[in-house]
Amino acid sequence: MHHLDITGLEARYGEHTVLSGIDLTVGRADVIGLIGPSGSGKSTILRVLMGLLPPVGGTVKLDGTAVNYADAAQVRRLRERIAIVFQQYNLFQNMSVLENVCVAPVKIKKRPRREVEEEARALLAKVGLGDKLKRYPDELSGGQQQRVAIVRALALHPEILLLDEVTAALDPELVSEVLDTIRLLAKEGMTMLIVSHEMAFIREVASRVVFMAGGRIVETGAPAQIFDAPVEARTQDFVSKILRH
């Protein structure tokens, strides 16, 4: 059974159609790289999956069970299994690094604080932030904040992790520290959907690459196929432009 099964997914912002019929299957421990020009709907897929933008058509199945996004209880259950990391980190500005990571597990999932904190410390140490526990988001660099955001998502013990252009807001020299963290997760078998403009990284880490344009999936394939031998003209055009940089 597929971990995530998306069929005919449609979404709109007002009158503007942003996703028109997305079909995508994600297996367990798959790492899907979503690429494409700005406005192609890559990030929107993640927002819809997360229940931030209600779909207007199509189905999403999680482990074979369809999710009804109009049902708050079902969305809540879904959010217990899928976590998202945002492009702008979205860390809680009023909380320290440690509190950002612990707040949901402790206050929402009601897990014992001691256990959660221990785990949070270990995770933060793993991403090189063991000495920043008491710091606040505005005292950290973008790369550090993004790693906190990833740890915060991981502390929820998600089965699937959605990463929305997690390096787009970072200075180039900070990108590698975030990518290292993601690499680590991929190695550990986390199912991930990664929206990114880091083509070299996608190529390396993704098990499958999805190229999108205009709210549709244009082409799907192994990284080598998409980057070296794309079939569709639209993909060839995009890839050739990207690789020229």
């Binding site: 809540r76 976590a83 998202i84 945002f86 702008q88 860390l91 500005q93 929402i108 999932k109 929820l156």
Partner: peptide
């Protein structure tokens, strides 16, 4: 808005 969204995705 992103603070509200982050909280929502974590089931606050």
């Amino acid at each position: 808005q992103n603070q509200w969204e982050a909280a929502a995705t974590m089931n606050f």
